[in-house]
Nucleic acid binder design. Sequence first.
DNA 1: TTCTTACTTAACCGGAGGGTTGAATGAGGA
DNA 2: TCCTCATTCAACCCTCCGGTTAAGTAAGAA
Lengths: 115, 115
Amino acid sequence: MTDRADLDTVFAALADPTRRAILTMLLEDDMAVTDVAEPFEMSLAAISKHLTILTRAGLIAQEKRGRVKWCKLQPDALRGASVWMQGFGQFEPVNLDAFERFLASELGGEDETRE
Amino acid sequence: MTDRADLDTVFAALADPTRRAILTMLLEDDMAVTDVAEPFEMSLAAISKHLTILTRAGLIAQEKRGRVKWCKLQPDALRGASVWMQGFGQFEPVNLDAFERFLASELGGEDETRE
DNA sequence: TTCTTACTTAACCGGAGGGTTGAATGAGGA
DNA sequence: TCCTCATTCAACCCTCCGGTTAAGTAAGAA
């Protein structure tokens, strides 16, 4: 499932504010590399490296269509890390079951876009 | 509450397997620095550095009693990071206001909201 | 006081991380 | 074909990270 190396790479990927911002942007929609880079004050090459790190962590997937490479979120990759964190159950974590039910009600009730 | 720098330091702290192992050990009980170091094949100074990093991330607290410094878990520090991650459990655009309310209800009450 | 225990600090090392610029690749468009 | 756009690669820079050893500090024991 989720071994140590996975957790290393996922947590390391999340430890950078630029990469977290990229993930947040991708929550809205899939994006091309150039569009991902646009709001940042940094070179395209730097963004490309960040995207490579996110891809290696499994947090996003990149698919090339034509000459454009599309980036899309792979939120399942967060699950292993999340579960690890919830293992510190001495606090009351965000309850995954409740979260699932929340999502189900949200997705089922008002925005049935999930196929 | 949880700003970017916090998430940086928390995720970075979690990205090292030694530090995650230390946190796991501290789940069982509070420990002195020397005892934390005992199972690891590395110098006490290295462990001391790891503990400093965990402390700065807020993940543990260190209290000196006599000449012994006790380390104890501060699992609340994981909450901010956990909440951030839960935001990515969703594939499809979900009502963000409802998501906020969900988080508020989950985190707000001491009692579990899951029935 | 002196010795020992429990840590931390300092100096150092190799390697990885985040950034740069500039060249290279690869796919359309004219 | 030639040009442009989208993206990566390569080389380099500097800083931080994870480890080392050795010296320093602080507190209890003798």
